[in-house]
Design a protein around this nucleic acid. Structure first.
Lengths: 356, 356
DNA sequence: TTGTAGGCGTTATCAC
DNA sequence: GTGATAACGCCTACAA
C-alpha cells in the first residue's frame, strides 16, 4: 500500500539541465541571490515550474548549517499553560518562516536532557525550554556551547547565558492575597506542583524565578497584613491527583485549617477543586480557591474561578521572537509581561470560626 | 551575546583520525553495523567519547532520505482535543525514536496546504493531519505521490490512499440522544464548528466521516423515537464565540425552542455554556447540554458536564504508530476506538412546556 | 576486517 | 553573467 515510488524529486541539476544553464546559475536564479540575467532567470523559473521543483531543505540545512527549526521543550503539551504558550511560539515562528519541533518531558530531567541532545543532533537553530530544574543545567549549557541561542520560558536560571521570557506574577499574586486578607482570611495555603531542589529560604525553595515570584507576592501581602506565614500551609511537589487529595485531607484536618487555598497552576487547581468537591467542601462558603494560572474553562467552573491570569500566549510569542532575533543576530528588546487578577466567584469572606 | 563560536563539532573524520582508522571503519563502529574488530571498535568509541562526538542528523537524513520526523498538522494546539491527541502522537513517536514537528492551521485550508509543502520540503517521513476539508485534497494527494505515508486523524476522506484513525462516536452519540429522548426531550439541537463544503444529505453535510458519525448517531436515535429531525436545529460553521451567541439567541427565540443542545466539540461547548450563562438560562432546568467531546475540566464545570468521551490520546497514539509502521513498511493492524458516555449533571428531564 | 572513493542536493568560491 | 568545482557530514559500494 505504501510502496515508495521511484520517481525522484527534481533537483537543481534537473532544472539547470532543462533550462540549458549551469547548476550554479540555476541555483542563483531560484535562490534569488548573486546576479542572473532576467532572461535566464525566467527560463530557469519556467523549468522549475514544469518539473515541479521544490528545494530539498535537508540538503540546504546541511550546507548552511541552519534548519529554520526551533526546538521546544515543555513538560506536557496537554497542560493548557503549555499548549497556549506553544501556540504563541508556533505563530511567531511561522511569521518568520520557522518551524517548531516539540518534546514533552513530563517534568522528567532525563527526558529533558535527551530532548536537548536530540534537538542539537538535528541541528535546530535555537531551543526554547521551560526547564524542570534550576540546578542541573549542564545540558542547557551544552546548548550555548554548541553556539545556539537558548530561551527560557517562564523560568529564570541563574548563571546561564540565556534569554528569559518572564511573566511577572508577583504583583497580581500580591493583589489576590491582599484581597483574601481583606475578606478576613488569615490561614492561606499555597499548593504547588513544583519539584523543588536546591536551597530553600525559611523553608521555602529558591532558585526558580517563577516560584519565587509567586511566593514573594503571597508572602509580601501576608507580611503587610502582619500575618506570619505558616510553613505547614505551603506545599510543594504535589504532582499527582492522589497526592493533591492527600494534601487537601491533611490541610483540612489541621487544628487551624486554611480558609483559602492558592493553586500554583491550572492542573493543581483542577485537582484541588475535585478533592474539595468530593469532600463536599463548599466553595467559597467553607474555603476560597484562587488559581495562580488561567485556562479557557476558568469562567465556567462551578463556581467560576477567580484566577491570576498570566499572558501565556504572549510569553510564548515573545520567546519565539527572542529566539529568532538571536539566531539572526539581531538584538532583541525584552518584553515586560504582567499577570492580572480576574475576580470571579470562587473566593469570598472567610467563614466565621466555630471555635474562637 | 549569542556569537557563534568557531569550535566545529567533531565529525566522523575527526573521530577516525584520532582513532587512527579510516572514515568508514569509524562510521561502522559508531553506527554498529557491518563488521569491525572489537579492538578497533573500542578505540573508535573512546575517540568519539573524548571528542564528544555526536552524529549530525541532518547529514544522516540527507543520504538516508529519512529524517525520523513526523509532521503533525492540527487546526489549533490550544484545543484540548488536539493537544491531547498530540501528546499521544509524541509519546508514540518518542517510543520509536521519532520526533514531531507541529503546524497549526486555524482550520484554514491555505495554511494546511502551506504546512504540507513545508513538511514535504523538510523531508518528514510521514504526515499526520486532521484535514479541514474532505474535498480540496490535492495537497494531501501530493503527500502520497511523494511516497510518504499519510495518516488521517479522526476524519476519513474518500478517494484518498491514506490510513484513517477513527473514533467511533455514533454509538455513544446515539446513547446520549436516546437518554435525552427518554427524559422527554423532543427538540434537540446540534451545534457544530464544522466548515461544511460539498454535498449534503437532507440538509446535512456529508463526506467528513466524524461528522457523519456524530450525526448518524443522533439522527438514528431520533428516528427510533419517531421524532422528525428539524433542520432548523442543526447548525454548522459555528466557529466564533460571537457566532455561537447568535445561534443560541436564534434557537431560544424559536417558536418551539430546543430543550436540549448537543455540542460537537469542547470549544463549542464552552461557548454555548458561556452564552447560556449570560442569558441566565438554567442548566439543566431550562435546557440540557451534552458535549460530544471531552476535556480535562468537564467534571468541574457548573454543572458538571455530561459528555461523550472519545479516547483521543489513544487515537493520537494509534495515528503515530500507524505512521511509523507505514514508514518502516510494516503492516499495521487498525485499532477500533469507541467513545463512551459519561453521565453527569448538565442534562435532565425536559422542562414542562408553558404552552401545550 | 579495513580503507578508498564516490554520492546525496544544496550553497559558496572563483575563474572565465 | 555564467559555469565548473569544491565543500557540508554522513553512508555505502567496492576493492584491498
Amino acid at each position: 500500500m505504501f510502496e515508495r515510488p521511484l520517481n525522484r524529486e527534481a533537483t537543481v541539476a534537473d532544472v539547470a539541465r532543462r533550462a540549458g544553464v549551469g547548476k550554479s546559475t540555476a541555483s542563483r536564479a531560484l535562490g534569488s541571490y548573486g546576479s542572473v540575467s532576467s532572461e535566464v532567470r525566467l527560463r530557469v523559473l519556467a523549468a522549475a515550474e514544469e518539473l515541479d521543483y521544490r528545494p530539498n531543505e535537508v540538503a540546504r540545512s546541511m550546507n548552511t548549517g541552519r534548519s529554520r527549526t526551533l526546538g521546544v521543550i515543555v513538560s506536557d503539551i496537554e497542560n493548557p499553560y503549555f499548549s497556549v504558550a506553544t501556540r504563541g511560539i508556533t505563530d511567531a515562528a511561522n511569521a518568520s518562516r520557522y518551524n517548531v519541533i516539540l518534546a514533552n518531558t513530563s517534568e522528567n530531567l532525563e527526558a529533558e536532557i535527551h530532548a536537548v541532545r536530540v534537538f542539537l543532533d538535528k541541528r535546530v537553530d535555537a531551543i526554547i525550554v521551560a526547564p524542570s530544574s534550576a540546578y542541573q543545567i549542564e545540558h542547557l549549557k551544552a546548548i550555548r556551547t554548541s553556539g545556539r541561542p537558548l530561551v527560557l520560558l517562564d523560568r529564570k536560571v541563574p548563571g546561564l547565558d540565556a534569554v528569559s521570557v518572564e511573566v511577572s506574577i508577583a504583583p497580581a499574586a500580591h493583589e489576590a492575597t491582599s484581597r483574601l486578607v481583606e475578606l478576613g482570611h488569615t490561614r492561606i495555603a499555597y499548593i504547588s506542583s513544583l519539584q523543588t531542589d536546591g536551597d530553600s529560604f525559611a523553608g521555602f525553595p529558591l532558585g526558580i524565578s517563577s516560584v519565587e515570584d509567586r511566593l514573594h507576592g503571597i508572602l509580601d501581602a501576608l507580611k503587610e497584613a502582619a500575618i506570619r506565614p505558616d510553613p505547614e500551609l505551603i506545599r510543594f511537589k504535589v504532582v499527582t491527583m492522589e497526592r493533591t487529595a492527600e494534601v487537601i485531607e491533611e490541610l483540612l484536618g489541621l487544628a487551624d485549617p486554611p480558609t483559602a487555598i492558592l493553586a500554583s497552576d491550572s492542573t493543581i487547581a483542577r485537582d484541588i477543586l475535585l478533592a474539595l468537591r468530593e469532600r463536599d467542601v463548599g466553595i467559597p462558603a467553607n474555603v476560597s480557591v484562587i488559581a495562580l494560572d488561567d485556562f479557557p474553562w476558568s469562567p465556567l467552573t462551578g463556581p467560576p474561578l477567580t484566577v491570576v491570569s498570566p499572558p501565556i500566549y504572549e510569553a510564548g510569542f515573545a520567546a519565539a521572537v527572542a529566539a529568532i532575533d538571536a539566531i539572526e543576530e539581531r538584538t532583541a528588546k525584552p518584553v515586560a509581561l504582567q499577570a492580572r487578577v480576574i475576580y470571579r466567584n470562587s473566593h469570598g469572606p472567610a467563614p466565621t470560626r466555630s471555635v474562637g
